[in-house]
Structures are given as C-alpha cells and as structure tokens.
Computed example of a mutant assay.
Amino acid sequence: MSQGGPRVRAHPGRAVVTAATVTLAVGLAACGTVGEPSDSGGITATKGGSMIGLLLPSSQSSRYETWDRPLIEQRIQELCDDCTVEYANAQLDVAAQQQQVDVMITKGVEVLILDPVDARSLRSSVEKADRAGIPVVAYDRLAEGPISGYVSYNNERVGVLQGEALLEALGDKADGAQIVMLNGSPTDPNAATFKRGALSVLQGKVKIGKAYDAPGWRSEEAHASMSSAIAALGADNIDGVYAAGDNLAAGAISALKAAKIEPLPPVTGQNAELAAVQRIVSGEQYMSVYKPYQPEADAAAAMAVALRRGEELDEIAETRVDSPTTKNVPAVVLDPVPVTVDNIKETVVKDGVYTIDQICTPKFRSACEKTGLIG
C-alpha cells in the first residue's frame, strides 16, 4: 500500500492523523469530478476497473453527500487507479439499502463500504455479501454480521464531550438544573453510545426532565419532542437541552423559539454542520462535536483497497472492537473534537471545512464581528 501514501494507523481513543488528512480544501478541489450525482439514491459509478461499493444511509445530515462520499471516492482512486466506486444512498430506507446491497452483489463489487441505516436489519445483507465472498467495511456505524473492518469515532467520547459542554454552559446553575434529552435514532447503534457517554457525565449533576428518541435522526421529530417537553415541564423549567445531533438541535431550537423562550437554554449538537456553526456564532446553539471527515474517509478507503488486494488490515487498524455478532473486528477509532464559539477558527476553518465567508454570510455578519470571526 506504500504507493498510495502513508498508512492510516489507529490507537484506542486517539485520532488518526496522516499527511493525507491535513488539507481538506485541496482534496476536495478534485472531488467534484470523481462521480456522478445520485439525487434518487440509485447506483452510480465512477470510471475504472475493479469495483468497490459504497452505501451511505441518508442525506438528512449534509455530511454524507458533501464530505464522506467525495472524500472516500477520491482516496480510493488515489490508492487504486483502476478501481470503480459504485455508490448509492438509502435515504433512511432500510428496504432500499437492503436492495442496494443485492445490486452491489449482482454487479460483482469486490469490497463493500457500508454505513447501515439500521445495523440490525442490515445483518442479513452483510451475511449475504459474506457468502458471496465480498468483505464488508462498516463505516461510521458498527454493522452487525461478519464485517471485516470498522471505521468510526470514539462515540462514547462524543456523548461525554456533549455532556461536559452542557454542564459548562449551565455553570453554577448546573446543580439542580433540569434538562431535556433528545437522543438519536433507536436503530442507530451510535445513538445508544452517545447517550451512554452523555449520561456518564450528566447523571447525578442535573435532573433529566424528559428524554426522547428521534427515529431517523429527523429534525421534525426533535421539534415535536421539544414541543411536548415544553408543554409538560413548562417554558420556564428547561435549563438546557442535550441534542445528540445538529439536525436535532435545529428542531429543538425551532420549538423553543416558537414557544417564545428567551434567552434560549444551551443546546448541544454533533457533526459541525454549517448551519450549526452559524447557530453557534449567533448564540442559538452552544456547541457541536466536530468529527474530521478526512481521516475517517481515508481509513475506510485504505481498508477497502487492502481487502480488495487480499491484504490483512493489521497495519491499518491497530484497534479491535466487538459487535453484537462479530468479535475482534479490525478497527480505526478516531477522536472527536468539541466546537464552541471560541474555537471555530482553530477547528472547522483551519481544516478547510468552511471558510469565514461561508460562515459569515450577511445574516451572520454582525454576530461574526461580535465573536471575533471577522474584524
């Protein structure tokens, strides 16, 4: 694999950092030419020979189409110039993703990178791929079944960072404060881990007035749940909101604003989406968790190409994890980074995820000036 650049290495609880992960902006300059857009969620392919399948779960979060897909495709082509990337997006439809796996098997992909809509429901599809001799790399979520590798972030640490930030935002009012928890989708194994991490920090420090799941991570679910919490607890009795993701934060904030709650209580988030960063700048959202996309994409691409070549993953993945069905899976586990108004420049701007101009549009210019993002 030396011809493709430095190997991706991982240690438990530590981020993977390689020369290939430093400059997102440069890598993305070429990404637009890698594959054709797939608005319908159907299979699309890049040019090449050997086929590697890439199945992503949704476009509910902007990260998948904006970052994960182009970065994975770009890195695969850097490592394997005769590889074709076959791509599809399930748009949160389990049956569609199961069918997409079937199509990938029929088309003869040699490796499959899979971010499952529902880890348990996709188990039979992973087993089907395994029977067809197709190794599966679980991406971002730990798929069930006989997977060959796994790439994600330290998801319990994500929840810990969110919980710590919420306590920091509450300050002296944390003791006895009442919060609402808006957790992720019950079919997403990461959501349970985020929640566990958050509770390890919050339990015993604050009162959890209401807690809800958000099927499919949909913002409208968060809006409805937040509205219910306001009705049940009272508008003056919500001191903070644990939102597991940025789209859930958006739904919660819209419900809080609709109830004319001022000032808004601190709200957490995850994925450092552009709209979330702008909400952080404007003071509507307290924080998000940034999970640098490039090292995750690089590791998945490196695993897929290694498996396509029949190579072991030991030099890529120096960590092992257990899924509910498979033990000792070679894994790359990366460190997440909290983002608040104080470190936007040092995180998402420095890494080239967003420019100051993208963040500080006319609507947010005054807020950007107040926070020091622009002079």
Rank of each mutant, 00 (worst) to 15 (best):
A235R: 15
A211Q: 13
G240E: 04
S227H: 08
L274K: 15
G251S: 05
A249T: 03
S288T: 15
D213I: 01
G234S: 04
Y212V: 00
L274A: 05
D213M: 02
P215V: 00
S225N: 15
G245T: 13
G245M: 01
Q285P: 03
G240H: 11
M226H: 02
K260M: 09
A224M: 07
N247E: 14
M287S: 11
K260D: 15
E273T: 01
Y290D: 09
A222D: 02
V289E: 12
S282A: 15
V241G: 10
K291M: 13
A249K: 07
K257Y: 01
A224R: 13
P215F: 07
Q278N: 09
S228C: 00
W217Y: 11
V241T: 05
N247D: 13
D246V: 02
G209Q: 06
P215N: 07
G234R: 09
H223G: 00
K257G: 06
S227W: 04
G234E: 04
M287F: 05
A232H: 10
V241E: 11
P215D: 03
A249M: 08
A255E: 06
A250Q: 05
S282Y: 09
I261V: 15
P266E: 04
Y242L: 15
Y286W: 13
A224W: 00
I280Q: 12
S228A: 14
E221C: 06
K210R: 15
W217L: 04
L256N: 05
G209E: 05
A276K: 03
A222T: 00
M226S: 01
K260A: 14
A258M: 06
D236V: 01
S219Y: 12
S288D: 15
E273N: 09
V277L: 10
S254D: 13
A214M: 06
P215G: 07
P265W: 08
A272I: 01
V241F: 12
T268K: 04
S227C: 02
D246I: 04
Y286V: 00
G234C: 08
S227Y: 00
A211H: 01
E220I: 02
N237S: 13
I238D: 08
S288R: 11
A231G: 12
A250N: 08
A232S: 15
E284K: 09
K210W: 00
G251K: 05
I230G: 11
I261E: 12
L248C: 11
P263I: 12
A250C: 00
A272L: 10
A258Q: 14
I280L: 13
Y242P: 03
V241Y: 12
A229M: 06
Q270N: 15
G251M: 03
G240L: 07
T268G: 02
S228D: 14
K291T: 12
G234Y: 08
E262A: 14
Q278H: 11
